[in-house]
Design a protein around this nucleic acid. Structure first.
Length: 216
DNA sequence: ATGACGATTTACT
DNA sequence: GTAAATCGTCATA
């Protein structure tokens, strides 16, 4: 498991639309208390564009105990709990006291795949879970990397437990943009193309399963 | 104090 | 495709 250069403060100090694109291909790394290294290449992100974005938790300058981390220094993790059972992780960007952020929606697992399998649990039938189902959604990757409340507000630039690294070179693939997933009443922001994903990657959320090849 | 809802996932028809 | 699971958060009172 090769370790690459860690992403620094300057990398995160940009608008959400730019960070969402730049994070594709980067490596999200989680180091557990026992030293286990879990990581994956980011293949899907969504930009939340600060106080003007009706879909953002910080829309119109909303600032509550839950979303306080969005206003912290760029490179801060914003982890929130939703639907009574899932965590989602964002990377805060922009400038201090401004709340743009990027939701990490899917990873291609790299390090610690056996641990991810254990953390995600078995399927209802007890059948083995395909690797592509470990991190292909914001709630799933949080579960697979043991990302929870305790990481909210963590500084991704300095934390030993969670951070980002430059991805392996050569992952130069085609990037696609779509509307964001799961939005309800975000008005004109609902359909803006603020979701970035690696086109055709098997590890993105809502990926079409490959059509079975007819046997001869 | 109360109620509606959510940047989701899963199982089931 | 549809629906249930499940609870913290926030707006309203």
């Amino acid at each position: 498991m090769p370790e690459h250069a860690r992403l620094d403060r300057a990398f995160f100090s940009c608008p959400a639309e730019r960070l969402a694109r730049k994070l594709l291909g980067a490596l999200l790394v989680r180091v557990l208390d026992d030293g286990t290294r879990l990581s994956g290449i980011i293949v899907e992100t969504e930009a939340y564009c600060g106080v003007r974005d009706q879909a953002s938790h910080a829309f119109a300058g909303r600032r509550t105990p839950r979303n306080e981390a969005m206003y912290a220094v760029p490179g801060t993790a914003y982890v929130y709990f939703t639907y009574g059972m899932h965590f989602c992780m964002n990377v805060v960007c922009g400038k201090l006291d401004e709340p743009p952020a990027v939701l990490i929606r899917a990873l291609e697992p790299v390090d610690g795949v056996p641990s991810m399998h254990r953390l995600r649990g078995k399927t209802s039938g007890g059948r083995p879970r395909p690797v592509r189902d470990l991190c292909n959604g914001p709630g799933k990757l949080a579960q697979a990397l043991l990302i929870d409340r305790s990481l909210n507000g963590a500084d991704l630039v300095t934390s030993p437990s969670i951070f980002l690294e430059e991805g392996p070179p050569g992952s130069k693939r085609r990037i696609r943009r779509t509307a964001r997933i799961g939005l309800n009443n975000a008005g004109p922001w609902t359909h803006k193309p603020l979701r970035w994903l690696v086109d055709g990657d098997l590890h993105v959320s809502r990926a079409r399963p490959p059509r079975p090849v007819r046997e001869v």
